[in-house]
Computed example of a mutant assay.
Amino acid sequence: MIFKPTLLFIGGTEIIFILFIVVMVFGADKIPEIARGLGKGMRQLKDATNDIKNEVTKSAKEQGLIDTDVTKDINDEINKVRDEVEEFAGSVKRKL
Rank of each mutant, 00 (worst) to 15 (best):
K4C: 03
G11P: 01
D51R: 15
T57Q: 04
I2T: 14
L8K: 07
T71R: 14
N54P: 04
F9N: 15
E87D: 05
R94K: 09
R43Q: 10
K58Q: 09
G64C: 08
L7H: 04
T68D: 13
A89M: 11
G12M: 05
M42Y: 11
I18D: 08
K93Q: 06
F9G: 07
S91I: 04
R36I: 00
D73A: 09
I16P: 00
T6D: 06
F20E: 12
F9Y: 11
E14P: 05
A60H: 02
L7P: 05
D76N: 13
G64H: 09
E14K: 05
R82A: 04
L19M: 11
K80D: 11
M1W: 10
L8M: 01
T13F: 02
I66Q: 01
T68I: 13
F20T: 13
F3P: 11
K80C: 01
R43P: 03
D76Y: 06
D51N: 15
V81C: 01
D73Q: 14
I31K: 07
I66H: 04
N75Q: 12
R36Y: 03
T57A: 08
N79L: 05
D51H: 13
N75R: 10
V56D: 03
K30V: 05
G41R: 14
G27T: 03
I16F: 07
F3K: 15
G41Q: 12
T68P: 04
D51C: 12
E77K: 15
S59A: 06
L8V: 06
G27K: 03
D47G: 07
E87N: 03
K95M: 06
G41Y: 02
L65P: 00
N54D: 12
I10N: 11
K4P: 08
E77H: 12
I16Q: 13
F88R: 02
F20Y: 09
K95C: 00
K46C: 04
A89L: 09
G39N: 10
A60F: 00
D83C: 04
I21S: 09
F9K: 14
A28Q: 04
F20D: 14
K95D: 02
E62F: 00
D67K: 13
I34E: 05
K93W: 03
M42L: 13
T57I: 05
Q44F: 07
N75M: 09
T68K: 15
N50I: 12
K40E: 11
F20N: 13
L65E: 01
I74R: 13
S59W: 04
I34Q: 06
L38W: 08
N79V: 01
